[in-house]
Amino acid sequence: MSFSFFSISFTNSCNLVSHYSSEIFIENVIDGDTFLSNDSKYRILGIDTPETYDSSSNFKPTSGPQYFYGTLAKEKARELLGQTKVDIEALKKDKYDRWISKVTMKNGLDFSSYMIKNGYAIVRYISPIKSSYFYYYDSDYIDHLYDLQNYAKINKMGFWSESNAVLKKIYPK
């Protein structure tokens, strides 16, 4: 059964903010934290996966461990999400016109939680502070994601098995 809920509200800066929940078919996984469906681009809430292309250098491929782990994250996202239906809660649009979204896979697993717990992503672009403009506010969800990230670090999951020097190459900013 599929359902849709749509509401519109205005923020203080008069930016249009929309929110809806629905079941969608994922047509194309762009990278570990972004995908396409029905001509809309979606950005997964609360995670950031390593980049395979550097936007600051005209989208040239990254290299070394950043490219390796970015490719791994993209492959895992394709395995879990590619060409399938998921439940999505699209929360708002970001400055790149992507829907910031919570994604639940058909087995009930939260995609962000999986990616962080297994060392494919770090916690990012979510805030415990309501007034944060760029980040989405969700204090309970961010605490949950940080708990999973700490688990991944302690258990050396995914890229957390690397040295601090390598981690700085994977996430240079």
Rank of each mutant, 00 (worst) to 15 (best):
S2Q: 13
F6N: 10
F6M: 10
F10V: 15
C14S: 08
L16K: 12
H19G: 02
S21W: 08
E23N: 05
E23Y: 10
I30S: 05
F35D: 00
L36H: 11
S37Q: 07
D39Y: 13
D39S: 06
D39F: 13
K41H: 04
G46E: 05
I47H: 01
E51V: 12
S57D: 07
K60A: 05
S63I: 11
Y67T: 03
A73V: 01
E75T: 10
K76C: 02
T84Y: 13
K85Y: 14
E89D: 15
K92R: 15
K95W: 15
R98H: 07
I100M: 10
T104W: 14
T104Q: 12
K106H: 04
N107S: 12
N107E: 00
N107P: 00
D110R: 05
S112N: 00
M115A: 00
M115F: 05
N118M: 04
R124Y: 09
I126L: 06
I126K: 02
F134T: 13
Y141L: 13
Y141N: 10
D143N: 09
Y146A: 00
N150K: 08
I154K: 10
G158V: 03
G158N: 01
S161N: 14
A165Y: 13
L167R: 15
L167G: 01
I170D: 02
P172L: 05
P172Q: 03
